[in-house]
């Protein structure tokens, strides 16, 4: 079985994004606290750890794209998270904005309230847009949800 890099990155990215989203939305405000039962510490812990992994996965996919363009490989990768058009480009831009504002929040939390205010505002609203876009993405790729016809497909595999 050949496992493709873009396929693995796509699902790693989805898992990390889900973790970041649930822990992040639990920290947005008092109205949202119920999502993780008001356990701010857990949310903070999960958010920071998965942010580190998220940055690593993003860097890996960017390096992969750069390597591909150095090799002049213009083939369209259907599963890759970043790309030059469409939802891939949207993901790329949103990821960059989220990472940069997240880093700003990370360092500004001890001083510079203007910086953290600006970064938190952008971070929060961009993540609403990104969540809506994920739902739209599920709608577009809905065929992945249809269950395979069991009898014949299993027989063909065997």
């Amino acid at each position: 079985m050949n496992i493709r890099f873009d396929f693995v990155v796509h699902w790693l990215y989805a898992i990390l994004w889900a973790l970041l989203a649930i822990s992040g939305f639990a920290m947005v405000g008092a109205k949202y606290g119920w999502i993780l039962n008001f356990s701010y510490a857990t949310a903070d812990y999960v958010h920071r750890l998965s942010a580190g992994l998220f940055v690593i996965v993003t860097l890996a996919s960017i390096v992969y794209e750069v390597w591909r363009s150095i090799r002049n490989d213009n083939k369209y990768l259907a599963w890759h998270v970043i790309g030059r058009s469409g939802y891939q480009l949207f993901t790329f831009i949103v990821t960059l904005i989220l990472i940069i504002t997240g880093a700003l929040i990370w360092i500004c939390i001890e001083f510079n309230m203007a910086g953290i205010g600006f970064a938190l505002f952008v971070h929060e609203y961009i993540s609403y847009i990104a969540l809506a876009s994920v739902i739209w993405h599920i709608y577009m790729k809905c065929h992945a949800l249809t269950w395979p016809k069991k009898a014949d497909s299993r027989k063909q595999k065997a």
């Binding site: 889900a18 989203a21 649930i22 939305f25 949202y32 999502i35 609403y128 969540l131 809506a132 994920v134 739902i135 599920i138």
Partner: peptide, 9 residues
């Protein structure tokens, strides 16, 4: 999971 998140928000 993502539907749950959207519903939660």
């Amino acid at each position: 999971f993502f539907f749950f998140l959207a519903a939660g928000v």
